[in-house]
Design a binder for these strands. Structure first.
Length: 493
RNA sequence: GGCCCCAUCGUCCAGUGGUUUAGGACAUCGGUCUUUCAAGCCGAAAACCCGGGUUCGAAUCCCGGUGGGGUCACCA
């Protein structure tokens, strides 16, 4: 039975690297019919916060990466928050202390830092020198009397080496001499990452540890811990990192990096998941738009690349556009509604007519945008009259002296219509164009500008039908007046 | 700096000794369609980091170099 886990520390929002790690774990679990566990690694008291926990879980849910066991829903091997598992760690530490595999160290952080600095200056590796390994009882009493609170360190074997068998990278060998006696329990009684991770993965019966490559160098330490504790280690798979476009580790300054931000920009979870899956994984053939089911069916760790991947918002955006077009329109409307409400274009509980109108507007608009954020901008004039004419458009289509009269003629042609559907409007306009002996563009472009303020958008007749007769006439009147007032020379309106 | 990982178009991925004039996708540039834009379709440009081996033959195997990344905390 496959059991995997995603174990974020609640010290920030879920970023796309973490999201992809979660995704790979989720895909692996679902592919094998296994269990996906969510565990919160909140042993850093200063930085962890409940608010971050909530946000991470919210992001995960939004992406559709549901977990089977976790802090919010419990499970057979809980609790799933490390801060609630302290007794377990303490018991395990006692085991190690009893066996002599670990020992108390009374060095203070300041002393340690000073020695590290000294080692660095001398060009030596800044490793712990093991001076507390065999403290005599008298010395210990002195430290205690001085009020020192010890940490617990693990006694790493002097010689030899540990081999990490990685599903993605093969065997990686680490000499023990490059590992120092690392801390497993801080002086405040909380476990460190390496220790809590091992204890939990064992007690939670995790079979495969799938995590980012930055943890590869921690793995020999963890394997040592498995041995000292008498546990058999899980299988490891270190997936390549996701890098920023400048090839450095992803950071805040690289723009949108958290799942939350992409969500706010109007990316769809399906697209983000699909894009992230392709960052480092080859689905087996050249089709790149894959449903969740298809990804689950095809996923395997063997097909995960070893190379760090630079993420490319451009391709994500393209993919999002693909999803915007392929999803059922109703679905897109549902996702888009909050964005239109946030922009003040629709009321908060939207009336059914408003949703119906949004749907009609989105039908052509979604073909032309790549995110929901873009959709709002591209559709604004369908909801508000207070737009200005694009400067470029004015220069191009409002410059001709006869344009005001032309628009006025167009207005008259429309005014007589009883039915204002795209077909009727087009017929009226085509008739007018034939009558005036002018090409379509001559009337169409200025009309679009008058009606929307823009030079691009849905087909004009579709746009007119959507706007409806009243608004079309009013906007044409406005444009005619604007042109006749001579403002065309001054630029924008 | 020590240790570890990695190395194919600008980017993401194929390619696992001959089937390769190195394939696909995004982006770019042309063309086509068209009332604009987008989408679609057609096409172009674009890469095997370098040097040694091994082999009849190397993008593919080995070694070295270089480059990039990770990691060296009482963070995870």
């Amino acid at each position: 039975m496959v059991r995997v886990r995603f174990a974020p520390s609640p010290t920030g929002s879920l970023h796309i690297g973490g999201a992809r790690t979660a995704l790979f774990n989720w895909l692996f679990a679902r592919h094998h019919g296994g269990t996906f566990v969510l565990r919160l690694e909140d042993t850093d008291l200063e930085r962890s916060a409940r608010a971050w926990e909530d946000q991470i879980m919210e992001s995960l849910r939004w992406l559709g990466l549901e977990w089977d066991e976790g802090p919010d829903r419990g499970g057979p091997v809980g609790p799933y928050r490390q801060s609630e598992r302290l007794e377990i760690y303490r018991a395990e530490v006692e085991k190690l202390l009893g066996k002599g595999a670990a020992y108390h160290c009374y060095c203070t952080p300041e002393e340690l830092e000073a020695r590290r600095e000294e080692a660095r200056r001398a060009g030596r590796a800044p490793r712990y020198d093991g001076r507390c390994r065999d403290l005599d009882p008298r010395q210990v009493e002195e430290f205690k009397a001085a009020g020192r609170r010890p940490v617990v360190r693990v006694r790493v074997p002097e010689g030899g080496a540990t081999v990490v068998r990685d599903l993605i990278r093969g065997e990686v060998l680490f000499e023990h001499e490059v590992l120092d006696d690392f801390i497993i329990m801080k002086s405040n009684g909380l476990p460190t990452y390496n220790f809590a991770c091992v204890v939990d993965d064992h007690h939670m019966r995790i079979t495969h540890v799938i995590r980012a490559e930055e943890h590869l160098s921690n793995t020999p330490r963890q394997i040592l811990l498995y041995q000292f504790l008498g546990y058999s280690p899980p299988l490891f798979a270190h997936v390549p990192m996701i890098l920023a476009p400048d090839r450095s580790k992803l950071r805040k300054r690289h723009g949108a990096t958290s799942v939350e931000e992409f969500r706010e920009l109007g990316y769809l979870p399906e697209a983000l998941v699909n894009y992230l899956a392709l960052l480092g994984w080859y689905p087996g053939d050249e089709e790149e738009i894959l449903s969740r089911e298809e990804m689950v069916r095809r996923f395997s760790l063997e097909a995960v690349a070893k190379t760090p991947a630079v993420y490319d918002v451009g391709k994500l955006t393209w993919m999002n556009g693909q999803y915007l077009r392929r999803l059922p329109l109703e679905e897109v409307v549902e996702r888009a509604l909050p964005f239109f409400q946030a922009a003040g274009l629709l009321r908060a509980p939207a009336a059914p007519e408003e949703v119906g109108y949004l749907k009609a507007v989105l039908a052509p608009v979604r073909e032309r945008v790549r995110t929901l954020g873009e959709a709002v901008e591209a559709a604004r004039y369908f909801f508000r009259d207070d737009f200005q004419y694009e400067e470029q458009g004015v220069k191009k289509y409002f410059r001709d002296p006869g344009v005001a009269d032309l628009l006025a003629r167009g207005r008259e042609a429309l005014a007589g219509l009883d039915t204002f559907g795209a077909e009727e409007v087009e017929r009226a306009y085509r008739d007018l164009m034939a009558q005036l002996g002018i090409p379509g563009k001559a009337l169409i472009h200025p009309t679009r500008l008058a009606l929307s303020g823009r030079t691009v958008g849905p087909g004009l007749f579709e746009l007119m039908a959507l706007l409806g007769k009243d608004r079309c006439l009013a906007r044409l009147d406005r444009a005619v007046a604007w042109l006749r007032s001579g403002r065309s020379v001054s630029g924008s309106g």
